[in-house]
Simulated scan of single mutants.
Amino acid sequence: MQIGEAAERTGLSIRTIRHYEEAGLVIPSARSEGGFRLYTEPDLDRLRVIKRMKPLGFTLDEMRDLLEIIDALESATGADRSPLLDRLSSFHQAAEDRVRQLREQLEMAEGFAHQMLTTFQAAAASR
């Protein structure tokens, strides 16, 4: 599929997909005779991984590292898998930590929003 359909199916903009391509995170599987980027389902899966990492604050280098681990795991066997799994486990722990931090931030933001509502209601009632 071309980049427009890839963007639509992943919820990313064409510009963002091109940025991730320039950063080396995802490379279109092929090009059409006219030079258009062509993406496959595995390409879309990579874009979805990247999209999920972004709100957790992972850097492009961290995203690249995780994608390399995932790629390597597909062909690794025996003892080669153990260090990859250890690195993958580190990413899992980092993701869990970042999710916890986001939950704490959300809780604080919700508390603030509730405080503003009660302040507004009190001010409106005293008019």
Rank of each mutant, 00 (worst) to 15 (best):
E21M: 08
E104P: 03
D65K: 07
A76G: 03
L38K: 06
S89P: 00
R52M: 14
R87I: 03
D80T: 11
V26C: 01
Y39R: 05
P55V: 12
T119N: 06
T40R: 13
R15A: 15
M53H: 06
G34T: 12
G34D: 09
S126A: 14
A109T: 15
H92F: 08
I70D: 02
M116P: 09
G57S: 07
M53I: 05
L12Q: 02
D65T: 12
F112L: 15
S29G: 14
L66V: 04
A125E: 15
S29Y: 02
M108Y: 11
L56C: 08
V49E: 04
E21N: 06
E21Q: 15
G24Y: 08
A72G: 04
D43G: 09
I17L: 07
D65A: 14
D86R: 12
R15K: 10
L73M: 14
L38P: 03
E96Q: 15
D97L: 08
R37L: 09
L38S: 05
G34K: 14
R64C: 01
E68M: 15
I17F: 03
T59L: 06
L84W: 02
R81V: 11
A6G: 05
S90T: 10
F36C: 05
M63P: 01
S89K: 14
A23C: 15
F112I: 10
G4Y: 06
M63H: 02
E110T: 02
A7Y: 00
L66T: 01
E41H: 04
K51P: 01
G24Q: 10
R81Y: 03
V49W: 03
S126W: 11
E22K: 10
P55H: 08
E22M: 09
P28N: 06
E107H: 12
A7L: 02
S90V: 06
R87D: 10
A76H: 04
E5M: 14
Q93N: 13
L38W: 11
L85P: 00
G34N: 10
I27A: 07
D45Y: 07
L12H: 04
S32A: 11
R9S: 08
E110I: 06
E110K: 08
Y20F: 12
I3E: 02
P42L: 08
R103V: 10
M1R: 00
G78D: 13
E33T: 04
F58K: 03
S29I: 07
E110D: 14
H19F: 15
D71M: 05
M63A: 13
M63T: 07
R64D: 09
A124E: 11
E110A: 09
I50V: 11
